[in-house]
Amino acid sequence: MTTKRATPRIEVVGVQKVFRSRDGREVVQALRDINLEIFDGEFICILGPSGCGKSTLLNAIAGFSRPTAGRLVANGRVVTAPGPDRAMVFQEYALFPWMTVWDNVAFGLQLACKPKAEIRAKVDALLAKLALTDFRDRFPKDLSGGMKQRVAIARCLALDSPTLLMDEPFGALDALTRRSLQDELLRIWQDFRRTIVFVTHGIDESIYIADRIIVMTYRPGTIKQIVPITLPRPRDPSSPEFNAIERELTRLVMEEQLRHQKDEARATAGH
């Protein structure tokens, strides 16, 4: 399915991230020695328990925070700041509540100073594609969580950015809405041929959607294992193959989850 090319879309080389408290005494190593290549058109999931640094890694790729050491290259350029070539979908939707659905989707194009007719055509087409046309003049407060996240996806797709970064985008949604949005996302991914980096703690979610799953360790965050998923799509979560992968991944993630819990227990006892 994926076409691997010589130069990866996103290249993470020896990335470290250290968080320091204001007085510099308490230090948390969030990321250590991350090396990763993500190729054009790939659907990557970053999987791990909370505190494993998966969102930190995504934020570094997005350019919201600079790594303490190492190098990040996206779309052939070293990452120094956030930019529309790495559009991000947030768990909290982050739609602008004062803009209508249409304006939210058009905002990125207006920032890029595209001609009005082009913006109109593109936004209308995207809203139609995501079944949002009837809601074009609504404000985000009137939308359900699933619909908000569709608008957020449309807003990112409008930018034509080659990579889509998604930070637990369906984490706040109910199971049924989540499944239908996963299907929708897969359809979009196949239609638009984007590279997607998708952070999640949902094991079945990652097997359902990803080409490759990056399993991360708990603090310091390192890459524990990269699991390629070769099951043909659409995948059946009740098939034995799916379940075998799920068992194996659960084992990997639970090891880290237990470390996370022990760490928390120690921290509570210490204080």
Binding site: A62, F64, A81, P82, G83, P84, R86, A87, M88, F90, A94, L95, F96, F107, G108, L111, A112, R155, L159
Partner: peptide, 8 residues
């Protein structure tokens, strides 16, 4: 964050 990500 969202606005800067979109290029504002």
């Amino acid at each position: 964050r969202a606005a800067r990500n979109l290029g504002a």
